[in-house]
């Protein structure tokens, strides 16, 4: 008689990310974590707390405030056969390293005629909702999604928070992981044997028949909440979690829209020239004749994210906003 498998444990995104880091540092001797305050401080958002004690300062490496310098150093170390995990505190700060990410990490393989791949992982916080105002709160992952030569991941579930890092680390190409800061403290159930997950496909997080809500990362819980609200109105919403923002899994998106015939793209990033525009365009290109209604979008307001809580919340897609857009789509195009 075998013992019953241990049941799921309650954990947070923060703990799941930390466990992923610990696992990577234990299993991959080429891996090391580097960034501002990842060591003694324990990480700006507490993700790497305790790792310095376990792995030492060589492998949990505090850096000066030098985003271009240490992101570039991560690229160099990756070119030299290491598997660096570079943490940038927030996506806003990553703009200081954009030259290194775009002109070096993303371009190197092609520019060198296939000689130099960059097996680098860059993690950074994204998203608003914590009253951190206009220089700590934006959702610029869509900008990075514009760049050929990198993979862009956005975990929206505990399984992905726990499992994407390892797969990204074993990938031969640069991978950016965007951790939504609102989710760090979010609790949920995670299987004790949760481990690496694939990073190539979007996932249907909730099945439905009347329309598809397409989202990722921090907006995923809100889309799922909206689907509950819609159910009360008798509307069955499918929820697609993009998971990987580049390369986009168009197949999963089109398959869902072809089943439901309506789509709402939900993204807390700005609307203009955005990832939501890209998803919408792909639906138009690939499933135009499946659509019963124009693709709708619920996006962040086009403002620098403000500090005051009521303004900040007004700038972000809320479950009610998503549900409203979905209802209109069904009612106006029934």
């Amino acid at each position: 008689m075998t013992a019953p498998a241990p049941g799921p444990t309650t954990t947070t995104f923060r703990q799941a990310y930390r466990e992923a880091l610990r696992d990577a540092l234990r299993r991959d001797e080429l891996a090391f974590l580097m960034g501002e305050d990842v060591g003694m401080y324990g990480g700006c958002f507490g993700v790497s707390t305790g790792l310095l004690e376990e792995f030492g300062p060589e492998r949990v490496r505090d850096t000066p405030l030098s985003e271009a310098g240490f992101v570039g150093a991560g690229i160099g170390a990756a070119l030299n056969g290491m598997h660096p995990i570079v943490e940038v505190m927030t996506v806003n700060f990553s703009l200081l390293a954009l030259d290194q990410i775009m002109n070096n990490a993303a371009s190197m393989l092609h520019m060198s005629g296939g000689q130099f791949n960059v097996p680098l992982v860059i993690r950074m916080t994204t998203g608003a909702g914590r009253q951190l105002a206009a220089q700590h709160s934006h959702s610029l992952e869509g900008w990075f999604g514009h760049i050929p030569g990198i993979r862009v991941l956005a975990p929206g579930t505990l399984e992905d928070a726990r499992g994407m890092l390892w797969t990204a680390l074993q990938d031969p190409d640069p991978v950016l992981i965007f951790e939504n800061g609102r989710l760090y403290g979010t609790e949920g159930e995670l299987a004790p044997d949760a481990g690496p997950v694939e990073i190539d496909h979007a996932a249907v997080r909730r099945a439905g028949t009347d329309l598809t809500l397409i989202t990722y990362g921090g907006s995923l819980p809100r889309a799922l909440e909206a689907a509950e609200l819609l159910l009360a109105d008798g509307i069955s919403a499918e929820v697609v979690d993009l998971r990987t923002l580049r390369p986009l899994d168009t197949t999963t998106i089109l398959a869902s829209v072809s089943r439901t015939h309506r789509a709402v793209v939900v993204d807390e990033a700005w609307r203009t020239g955005s990832l939501s525009a890209e998803v919408s365009a792909r639906i138009m290109e690939g499933a135009f004749y499946e659509l019963d209604a124009p693709v709708a979008r619920v996006c962040g307001a086009e403002v620098p994210i403000p500090y005051a809580q009521h303004l900040e919340q007004a700038a972000l897609p809320q479950p009610e906003d998503i549900a409203l857009a979905a209802r209109e789509l069904v009612q106006d195009h029934g």
Binding site: G72, A78, L79, Q100, N104, F116
Partner: peptide, 30 residues
Amino acid sequence: FDAERRFYGGNAIVAGGLPLAVGLALGDKL
């Protein structure tokens, strides 16, 4: 570029190669 000869470019962003050099050396040291 030349991987065999460890020639890492050829960088056309002024000073863009310096952080790479730091990282290459870090990899050797580690």
